[in-house]
Design a protein around this nucleic acid. Structure first.
Length: 107
DNA sequence: CCCATGACAGATT
DNA sequence: AAATCTGCCATGG
C-alpha cells in the first residue's frame, strides 16, 4: 500500500484508514483524525461519520471514544450489537481499550 | 455578534 | 473516579 497519496484529501484518507480497521478491533475519533492528517480534530471525524450513508461498507461501528465509551447517539445499541458480533466483549457501555484498540500496521 | 450544542480528547482539579 | 476546563470548529438561534 502507498502510505502517502499526495492528492488524498483528509476525508479520503479517513475512509482509507477506517477501512483498514479489522473486525474485532476498534479505533478512536482522535486517532482517525491524526491519521487523516488533521491532529486534534476528533469532532471533525464525528461529523464525517455522522454523514455516512446508511449502507456504507465502512466499519463505522469500530470507532469509539478514547476512553472506550460507545458514543451516546441514535444507533449506539446497534453499534454495541455489531461489536459483540465480532467478539468484542463490552464492559457495560465501554470497550476495554487495552485489549481491543487497533494500532495502524497490525493485520 | 454571542451562545449553545455536537458520533471528541487531554490536562487539571 | 468524576467533574471541570480548554482546545477544536461547523451549524443554528
Amino acid at each position: 500500500m502507498d502510505p502517502d497519496l499526495p492528492e488524498a484529501e483528509p476525508v479520503t484518507r479517513l475512509y482509507q484508514v477506517l477501512h483498514a480497521v479489522p473486525p474485532g478491533r476498534v479505533t478512536t475519533y482522535g486517532e482517525l483524525a491524526e491519521l487523516a492528517g488533521l491532529p486534534r480534530r476528533a469532532r471533525w471525524v464525528g461529523r464525517v461519520l455522522a454523514g455516512l450513508p446508511e449502507g456504507s461498507r465502512l466499519p463505522w461501528h469500530r470507532v469509539v471514544r478514547a476512553d472506550g465509551l460507545v458514543a451516546d447517539r441514535p444507533g449506539a445499541s446497534r453499534q454495541r450489537a455489531l461489536l459483540l458480533a465480532e467478539g468484542v466483549m463490552l464492559k457495560g457501555n465501554r470497550v476495554p481499550m487495552a485489549r481491543y484498540r487497533w494500532r495502524p500496521g497490525e493485520s
